[in-house]
């Protein structure tokens, strides 16, 4: 019975959509536009998040050691770093290695450091952090603890700009959600009007259904299904347009910013989000149709 009912709803809805194909196209395109904009925001947010995660992974904490640090003090600092859950990997850079790195990175300036024994480069520990390290105050307190240790002259880490980037990503996400919600509401209202037109053009049919004693769900069902199908079509169209936009963006970026940004690192939305977008579109359509059909009966 349930299956037969669904089959009837879908069959009637498809016929109805085809019959009013001009207004169907209007509402499908409106839903697609709303979801496309939402999808763009979601994609930008997802890519910013991925970027923050990648950069967080590369983020290093440098603990500079005093020149007169004792072996025991150095070992104590190393233990403190290794024992901290924020630290993924610790590497000791001796004074000689620091000098060698300077000479390698800045060969022009290399002659300025003539005496290998009296150069200004201190030994340090370079710690790679876990990707969540820039969140919360744990990193701050680790840095404070390290600064207070004997043999440590300074602790440096880049945190502020990562936090800023994260704030921007969150802001884009929120902005997207607000714009998407407003557009989704507009799309729902378009569906409402399209379904209302369908109800009006089929008022005789509805009256006949009422007279033969059709249950309200039987009368409303096809119209609500029309809204749901419009939503699903709009969402599919939006996802197609989004995929096209991402591939175009990759091409543009590869041509314009070759060597600066890896264009292939731009990612699309995950499969689960695709499903969510389609379900969201169907929900928008369903809401619009229910609004239109609420006066029936």
């Amino acid at each position: 019975m349930l299956f037969a009912g669904l089959r009837y709803f879908v069959g009637e809805a498809v016929t109805g959509l085809w019959r009013g194909r001009r207004s169907t196209v209007l509402s499908v395109v409106t839903i697609a536009a709303a979801l496309f904009v939402l999808g763009i925001f979601l994609t930008v947010t997802a890519n910013l998040d991925a970027l923050v995660a990648r950069w967080s992974e590369a983020a290093e904490l440098s603990v500079y050691l005093r020149d007169d640090v004792s072996l025991a003090e150095r070992a104590e600092v190393q233990r403190a770093l290794r024992g901290d859950p924020l630290v993924r990997e610790v590497q000791l850079v001796t004074r000689d290695e620091a000098l060698a790195r300077f000479r390698r990175d800045f060969p022009d300036l290399a002659p300025a450091v003539s005496n290998p024994q009296a150069h200004p480069f201190p030994a340090s520990f370079e710690a790679r952090l876990v990707s969540q390290a820039s969140e919360g105050d744990a990193l701050e307190s680790l840095a404070a603890r390290l600064r207070g240790m004997r043999g440590v002259s300074d602790v440096r880490y880049d945190r502020l700009w990562l936090q800023r980037l994260q704030s921007i990503a969150a802001l884009v996400g929120w902005g997207g959600a607000v714009v998407g919600a407003v557009l989704a509401l507009a799309a729902a209202l378009t569906v409402t009007n399209v379904v209302r037109l369908a109800l009006f053009s089929r008022r005789d049919e509805i009256q006949i259904m009422e007279l033969v004693g059709a249950p309200l769900s039987f009368i409303k069902g096809p119209f609500v299904m029309e809204g749901i199908l419009q939503g699903a079509l709009g969402a599919t169209l939006a996802l197609g347009a989004l995929a096209l936009a991402i591939s175009l963006a990759r091409g543009r970026l590869a041509a314009a910013a070759a060597g600066l940004i890896d264009a292939s690192s731009i990612v699309g939305l995950p499969a689960a989000t695709h499903v969510l977008v389609v379900v969201g579109g169907m929900a928008v359509g369903c809401l619009g149709a229910l609004l239109a059909a609420r006066r029936l009966g």
């Binding site: 005789d204 049919e205 006949i208 007279l211 004693g213 059709a214 249950p215 309200l216 009966g297």
Partner: peptide, 24 residues
């Protein structure tokens, strides 16, 4: 009640001057 109206109408056949058939 509205639901009872539906049940009642299923027990009544009606015929109108303008036929009231669904054209589609």
């Amino acid at each position: 009640k509205p639901r009872e109206v539906q049940t009642y109408r299923r027990t009544v056949g009606f015929v109108f001057q303008d036929f009231k058939l669904i054209p589609g």
